[in-house]
Amino acid sequence: MQPMTKIVSAVSAALALAACAAMQPGPTDAEARAKATAMMKTSFKESGQAKLDRLNQDETQALCSQYAGKELPKDVAERIEKANLASIRWPADGKYLGDWKRGEQIAQRGTGFQFSDDPKGPVGANCYACHQLSKEEISFGTIGPPLYQFGKVRGFTDDMRRYAWGKVWNAQAYSACSNMPRFGHATILTEDQVRDVVALLMDPASPVNR
């Protein structure tokens, strides 16, 4: 950069800052977020298995909080998806499908990780809280898309099994700031449990695909 350009850009940066300050008399968005985070850290106490470190956000959580209720910029979305995709642990033996019957139990179970829960488990994924899965279970939520016929519609292919694994392991690898917990990434479910949930979605014999 030429010295003259440097000065010009420094001056315009200072002007832009001044303009911002004039437009926003209150705290900036970033200041409000920092204050709110500090306030939260004085407002909770550890309880059972839920320690205060649960209020420490990782980069994905911080970015998704920052852009919540606003449009997520494309470059930020790509950055989140890239980092989360890179963190997925694929099954060492290449086996994606476990037991759909156990997967159904995991999908029904809502306990795990609450301060009121036994830290020894059991832990579920509570899929039905947000998704339709089997046709038989009519008590399902609508925060996530319906997954009835998930495998049947998409095809029982290796690519789809791999995608289902990745989605359960870390949904934000494919959809930045998705509402869905990152079940494998956050070690909510074990690798075997992820396998069972993938079977619920992708086994042709699963009630999801009947």
């Binding site: 998704c64 909080s65 917990p181």
Partner: peptide, 17 residues
């Protein structure tokens, strides 16, 4: 203003807000 930020604060093992 801070209440609004708390409403959108994602955290914990499940990323919930």
């Amino acid at each position: 203003a801070l209440g609004e930020k708390i409403f959108f604060f994602r955290g914990g093992p499940y990323d919930f807000s």
